[in-house]
Amino acid sequence: MVSRRDLFTGAAALIGAGVVSRVGAASLPEAVIMQSAATQVPPPPPNGRPYNPVVTLNGWSLPWRMNNGVKEFHLVAEPVVREFAPGMKANLWGYNGASPGPTIEVVEGDRVRIFVTNRLPEHTSIHWHGQPLPNGMDGVTGLTQKGIQPGKTMVYEFEAKRPGTFMYHPHADEMVQMAMGMMGFWVTHPKNPNFMKVDRDYVFLLGSYDIEPGSFVPKTSTMLDFNLFTFNSRVFPGIDTMVARQGERVRIRFGNLTMTNHPIHLHGHEFEVTGTDGGWTRP
């Protein structure tokens, strides 16, 4: 049994260890920026355990560097310009030049270290949605950490213990920050790359925005009356095609962090639910 006092004491220790000093900032991994809205071909893993990479629809996967056996990523929270469709752009908030942010791919059992730099005009944090991790790494401002102030960098570190489909998003002024597009996908692949193996593996986040004609900024106070329903912040006819050959087994991982439901239908196909947030529903 962990007492409330011990819980917050432990969280405070992690917070103190997580703030990056000026000296430490000089050794941060490169913050790769991607502003294209085209689907990027996922490269095979350059090191670490093998896995079958996913394809992020109209997006990309974040590269990492290995540091003494730890996978290090660098996320930058910042204002971005997202092309919803050809000729239609919006001023959003996101990560590494895009909204949603890049997909993070790791393997079950990986030790992961994520540096988060804040270039927003207000404090932020990142919550690793659905993942079992230390309380101090959960990213809830005012409860498990102090907010990452503008111009500052914080490091999160934990073990990716469970394979599955996850998401990341702020827990700092989240009603505004998530409505502005701050979210991303996280995939933890199983140790055995043949477990639940498929021929095609796609990921995308459902999004809902209210952007008035002639405006370029979402209305963050809208709760239900949206006028744009997106796949990875893209609308028809700007959504890339999910391609498969006849007879191939296809997995589509999708998540919804919006304020409303977002039903979808795959015309002419039969499909089954094999996993939910944080794990598989069948062996």
Rank of each mutant, 00 (worst) to 15 (best):
M1Y: 13
V2M: 10
V2T: 13
R4N: 07
A25V: 06
P29R: 02
E30H: 12
E30C: 01
V32H: 09
A37R: 07
V41T: 15
P44A: 13
N47P: 00
N52V: 14
V54Y: 13
L57D: 04
W60R: 06
N67H: 08
V70P: 03
V80G: 05
P86M: 04
K89M: 01
N91E: 14
W93Y: 12
S99Q: 00
E105M: 04
I114Y: 02
H123K: 14
P132M: 10
P134T: 07
P134F: 07
Q145N: 11
Q145Y: 02
G147F: 02
Q149I: 03
G151Y: 07
R162F: 05
G164T: 13
Y168N: 01
H169F: 09
V176Q: 10
M182L: 06
F185A: 08
W186P: 03
P190M: 14
P193I: 09
N194K: 13
F195N: 07
D199Q: 14
D201Q: 11
G214C: 07
S215H: 14
V217N: 05
N227L: 05
V235Y: 04
F236D: 09
G238A: 00
I239A: 03
I239V: 15
D240T: 09
V243N: 12
R253G: 00
T260E: 09
H267Y: 09
H267A: 09
H267Q: 09
G268L: 01
H269A: 13
